[in-house]
């Protein structure tokens, strides 16, 4: 953990607000594309993050309970204790920048990730002084044509191919193309997050509070330092009986731990924790993911106490404040300010 002293001030007030380098912005990309024909999108600037097209449908997927034989409410022994040294989060911003051909959307996206570390004076600062920021144009290269891609490359625009080269590119609904682009953007963002998580776990000593799960990480998902906190519950890892248990969880209580395993991801230990009381049975509820090696009930209690400690200060005015740590909100605000 770094402590900013007198010399640290330079880091806090930098010479200019020039966004951390990370590639061409939308305007620059549009300038290049306009030279090669095509048309501008009708509605300018509508961020794709606001229309949710490709959202996984809600479902139940009961996981194997590893603490006892069935899912139960457990009283946590010990008071909340602040132990996390950093907060990891990422953001993405994407818009349809251009239509190089009719019905072929080229999507510009900014993805960014950062860790905010907590200093001795309880203030937050950016780990290693800067976030990771990447700007790129997402489009199916096979449909756009090699010439355009070469021109973009020559103008310094990074291009990400949204379709694997072997996949048949023709006859695609433009919405579908947007969907695959978003998928690619999300993956890119996850990669940035993972990079930071991996570096943190390799070099730091204090736990890292990660916004979202850690099972998608490789090395970091096996580190005792990575604590994933999942705020949304589109998949509930319980059965009908378990749902009744979750609904009855009091603030400060947790569920029995489970083993959560999905295809292509690392198997992790996971449990539900009620942070705050709310009328809605899923309100105030988070799911925690930690590495499976070394997991036991004491660790589940300890990690729960770490997470409970981050309820203050409240992340208001964010609508998700009941399940969001202040450090995560701070990280998100920070990323919005420098890369949004």
């Amino acid at each position: 953990m770094t402590t900013l002293g007198r010399n640290g001030r330079e880091g806090r007030v930098r010479e200019s607000y020039a966004a951390p380098s990370g590639g061409a912005n939308v305007r620059e990309v549009q300038r290049v594309l306009a030279q090669h024909g095509g048309s501008a999108p009708a509605a300018r600037g509508g961020s794709l993050e606001t229309h949710s097209t490709t959202i996984t449908p809600p479902r139940l997927d009961a996981a194997q309970v590893v603490e006892g034989s069935r899912l139960e409410a457990r009283v946590i022994v010990g008071a909340p204790v602040a132990a996390c040294g950093g907060f990891l989060d990422g953001i993405q911003r994407s818009v349809v920048a251009w239509y190089p051909r009719a019905m072929l959307p080229a999507i510009h996206a900014t993805v960014a990730a950062a860790i905010r570390t907590r200093a001795h004076d309880r203030t937050l600062h950016t780990w290693r002084g800067a976030p990771l920021v990447e700007r790129a144009l997402y489009l199916p290269v096979a449909l756009a044509g090699a010439e355009l891609v070469a021109a973009l490359g020559a103008a310094g625009v990074s291009v990400v191919d949204t379709l694997p080269p072997d996949e048949h590119a023709g006859d695609r609904h433009p919405q579908e193309l947007i969907g695959v682009a978003r998928q690619a953007i999300q993956e890119r963002r996850a990669q940035l997050e993972e990079r930071l998580a991996t570096e943190w776990c390799a070099t730091e000593q204090l736990p890292l509070y990660v916004d979202g799960g850690i099972s998608g990480f490789a090395a970091a998902s096996r580190s005792p330092l990575a604590i994933g906190v999942v705020k949304s519950h589109r998949t509930l890892y319980v059965d009908a009986e378990g749902m009744a248990t979750l609904a009855a969880l009091e603030p400060g209580q947790r569920s029995s731990a489970m083993r959560v395993a999905s295809r292509g991801r690392t198997q992790v230990a996971s449990w539900y924790l009620r942070l705050r009381a709310e009328g809605d049975p899923l309100g105030g509820l988070v799911r925690i993911e930690v590495a499976e090696p070394g997991f036991n009930s004491e660790r589940a209690d300890l990690v729960s106490r770490w997470v409970l400690a981050e309820r203050e200060p409240a992340a208001l005015p964010d609508a998700r404040w009941r399940v969001m740590a202040y450090g995560i909100r701070d990280c998100e605000e920070y990323l919005r300010a420098v890369a949004g």
Partner: peptide, 26 residues
């Protein structure tokens, strides 16, 4: 903070809880 009420909500109405939060507000 957008309104002082948010601080009250966040600390469950007890000022001492607000003061020992692990992170200082920006």
């Amino acid at each position: 903070l957008e309104t002082p009420l948010h601080d009250v909500l966040g600390a469950d109405g007890s000022p001492d809880r607000a003061s020992d939060a692990p992170t200082r507000r920006t």
